[in-house]
Write a protein that binds this DNA or RNA. Sequence first.
DNA 1: TATACTGTATTATGTCGATAGGACAGTAGC
DNA 2: GCTACTGTCCTATCGACATAATACAGTATA
Lengths: 136, 136
Amino acid sequence: MFLQIDLAGSVAIYEQVVQQIKFAIASGTILSNELIPSVRELSRQLAINPNTVARAYRTLQDEGIVYSRRGMGLAVADESQHRCKTERRSWFEEQFRKLFEDAVRSRLDWDEVREIVNQQLGKYNPQLAPSVSAGG
Amino acid sequence: MFLQIDLAGSVAIYEQVVQQIKFAIASGTILSNELIPSVRELSRQLAINPNTVARAYRTLQDEGIVYSRRGMGLAVADESQHRCKTERRSWFEEQFRKLFEDAVRSRLDWDEVREIVNQQLGKYNPQLAPSVSAGG
DNA sequence: TATACTGTATTATGTCGATAGGACAGTAGC
DNA sequence: GCTACTGTCCTATCGACATAATACAGTATA
């Protein structure tokens, strides 16, 4: 399965389910008018309560990301991929913005921030030497 | 005051207090053997319950970051600045690691990741042109 | 000694997320 | 029609967090 839930973290499980379904739609893992996994099946695969999945699905339905086919399940709406791509981009922009802001507010040395970021960039870009030069 | 609490977020208030006190120690805003704000004073300034501050302070004391001077208050322990600096560095490393990992897992285009990161780097480094070249 | 602070501890209430267990109507396939 | 699915709804319980309102012992200062 394509979902990965962090039970220990502070983010509510149903919110993680909502987001990861959206990201799966954004990346094309689930296509428009395809059925998403049933409440009971997903709850079995993730080893969480069916009610928790149901709550996530209710949220997705309220937002119009999926629609109900009575007796069959929930299917991805037509415009969902584009909407989810936009949401995903905005979400990561916001997360990075907050993290940089926290780093500045906590007075972490800017050199350290660049060091950490370049390390991560290099990790997923092994052919690139870290290249953001020091400054200011 | 040097603390900034997000009441709406998912992070527990007492945990935010713990972390921000640690970061204030790391940055030298509070020095060794100096008293930190009293439970009641900080609760007034942050407009939160005294019990919430007391819980944060108990945590700091359990970790040995501060020690009690009975009847006077809590003071920063000797080795705390070094310890808090190390913790701060580790914390941001972990946050950035998770965020990049999430971006990869959600199949966000790597070009978009670099775009977002360079935007933030440029924001706090205005004299530097975004300089991580495309690759991969 | 009186007061005004300190930290610490207790009990109770309310909210929220998660779980447990069950019930219902609708649909597909035999 | 029967069975096995589907989403949806309900009540109840539990733990974590935050709050409210006290209470207590220790210390500094006047």
